[in-house]
Structures are given as C-alpha cells and as structure tokens.
Design a protein around this nucleic acid. Structure first.
Lengths: 188, 188
DNA sequence: CAAGTTTCGCTACCGTTGGTATCGATACCG
DNA sequence: CGGTATCGATACCAACGGTAGCGAAACTTG
C-alpha cells in the first residue's frame, strides 16, 4: 500500500537515455543556444511536447542530462582531490558536456528555479560526498567546488575549448597547496 | 590632414555614459536576459535603433559597458595579486556588474565574435598589465585570471549573490600560496 | 542662406525560440 | 469494455534580437 506497483494509463516510454544523448549531441554541434528544444526532440526521435511533458524547461532537461552524464564521484582511496579534479576535467572535455554545463549555468544565473535545481540536485551530492571524506568545514568545500568548476568553465568560455592537461595539473597543485596546509602532497 | 577636426552631418550625442548606467540598472533589476535592448533603450531615454547604430549586438554593448565600468587595474606597489583580487571582488559586487559579466560571458560561449571581443578588449589589457608586473609565464597569468574570475562567477551563479569577504580572503590565500612558491606572503 | 551629410526617434516588421493548447491515437489497468 | 494517461502532430502565442524605412534635427561646407 505504500507504493502502487503501477498507475493506470499508458506507461511512459523509456526515452530518457535517448533524449540525453541527443541533447549532448545537439549541444556539441550547435552550442547551447543552438540546441533548440525542437532540434533536441527531432534528434531523439520524439515530439517536443513529450519533452515538455517530462521536463518543465530546457534548463531542467539539460540539468537532468548533466546529472545523468556525470554520475557519482569516482571512488578514491587516497588522493581524493586530485582524482576529483581530473575526473571533472575529463567529463567537461566530453563532447557537448562542457557547453551544456556552461549553458545551464548561465540560464540558472537569472532563473531562481533552475538555480535551486542545479544547486540541490547537481551540486549537493558532490558537496556531501566531499564533506564526508574530507575533514574540512563546509565553506572550504564550497570554495573548492567554486574554484575547480569555475576555473574550468571560465577557461572554456574564453578559449572555446577545454583546459589543457598542463593547466589542470597546475590547478591541482594550487588547490592542494591550500588544502594541505601549504605543503605539496607529493611530487607525483 | 592626418585627422579631420570634424566630419559633416549631425554629430553623435554623448549618450554612452547614460546607456551604460541604464544597462547596469536594468540588468540589476531584471537579470541579463530580462535586460532587453528595448528596456535598456527606454531606461536610457534613447531609441533602440540608436543602440544598434552604435553596437552591433547586445553582447557587444554589455562588453563595452563592462570595459567602461571596470577601468584599468588599480596601481599596487607591493601586493599586486591581493589588490587585484579584492578589486575584482568589489567590482563584481556592484549592482548589475556581476550579472552582466556572467551574462556576456555566457553569450560569448556560443558566439565566436563576442568571444573574440571579450578576450581582446576586456581580458587582454589585464593580462598584459599583470604580465608586465608579475614575473610569470603567460600560461600562469592566464590560469590566475581563470581561477579568480571563474571562482567568483561560479559562486555568484550558484548562490545568486557575490562572494563573502571571508571566502575572498581564502581564495586570495590559495592563489598566493601557489604564486609565492608555497609560502604565505604574510599574515596580513 | 541652401545643399549635403549624418544621426536622431519612431514605427513597423521579420525570424527564431521557449513554451502552451488541443487533438485523435495508443497502450495500459481494472 | 470503460477509464486513464501518454504518445505524436499541428497549430499557436508572446517575447526577443535585430533590421528597414521614414521624416526631422543638427551639423559642415559652399
């Protein structure tokens, strides 16, 4: 009684994966503004109205897409911060991901609803995971996230392409220097 | 003969200051997407066609507005990086500036023309100024800019309000730790 | 003063986009 | 079978960035 096994009516078709893939493909080809809801729908072989039946806005769709694409933080026994930074850099480099990330971020800049979604559904899990494993106050973890994500997005916005490995290393170095009390963690 | 003292025809009215102020006011009130060219024109007491006669696009107008608002890097005899970071944090906190900054940045994400403008006219002068005073390779200066601006914009995008002083201090600490070889510059 | 030239404000207009409404058809439950 | 909810399709709307064309205004030059 706690959960009805199924509700009446036609069941929803399992199209989420297809839609997410189509969204990333379209964003990669045409950029975030060019990735129209019409075009995403067409690329996914789905009607636009179906998209709006499931996601309240384009931003919400892309946010869901990002959540699905990024998935959980990879496990790291030892060098958590290094691992997380390189993981994020790798994800952002995947086709469409960086542009989608930046685009939804910009949308959220002036849409409180979307900002809430982005903060609660996308960022919060990573915040909690980091907080659980890193013995640091919340403010420091939030700064860590701002620095890492902000830097990569800024770089991609200015240059149009993701960060080079060298710079990712430098960024890692800089962050680690702060979080390990000024000592370098190791020369790798 | 090198320069004609004045060309024939009706001279352009000196409305730039008024337009920039109106743009920031409007962005502050309604956000970047809400700051329509119609509304900016109305707020400045100017026709929309006049705006398009001077700036080729909304992004170009806002970019010019930012250049005008930020002005040159403040002089700093000693603690250049600290001064620059706090100066940037202060500017971004001014009403409308942060949102305008982020908005034009997002536009540039998918508009190569605007990206070029932003990179050449807005970022380049600061890059050169920093490079002249800081004995660092260009890649490091670029990273510095990405980290500082990216972090502040990311924070503002997620929370909706500019960075608190405490966090600016922490960010400064982190950046300085990297640029002074791991040593803190001083306890302030 | 009269041309000539450029900018002004104004209105009207266009294409695109996010998002909505409505429809018959379809797929499930009881 | 009836009820219900989703599907695709079409049509539609308001808003926005940007453009075209106009007569009026403000200059420079003759």
């Amino acid at each position: 009684m706690t959960s009805s096994p199924r509700s009446p009516g036609r069941p929803r078709a399992g199209i989420d994966d297809e839609v997410f893939a189509a969204a990333l493909r379209t964003v990669d080809e045409l950029g975030y503004p060019g990735a129209t809801m019409d075009r995403i729908a067409a690329a996914a072989g789905v009607a636009k109205t179906t998209l709006y039946r499931r996601w309240p806005s384009k931003g919400a769709l892309i946010t869901d897409c990002l959540i699905h694409t990024f998935g959980p933080l990879p496990p790291a026994d030892d060098a958590l911060i290094e691992t997380a930074i390189r993981w994020l850099a790798g994800k952002i480099s995947e086709p469409g991901v960086g542009a989608a990330f930046a685009g939804v971020f910009v949308d959220a800049y002036s849409d409180p609803t979307l900002r809430e979604l982005l903060s609660t559904r996308f960022q919060a899990p990573y915040l909690e995971a980091l907080q659980a494993k890193l013995d640091q106050p919340e403010a420091e973890i939030l700064l860590l996230i701002d620095v890492v994500a902000g830097t990569m997005l800024h770089r991609m916005g200015i240059t149009g392409s993701p960060m080079a490995k060298t710079d990712v290393t430098a960024l890692t170095d800089m962050v680690l220097g702060h979080f390990t009390g000024g000592r370098r963690s190791r020369t790798r």
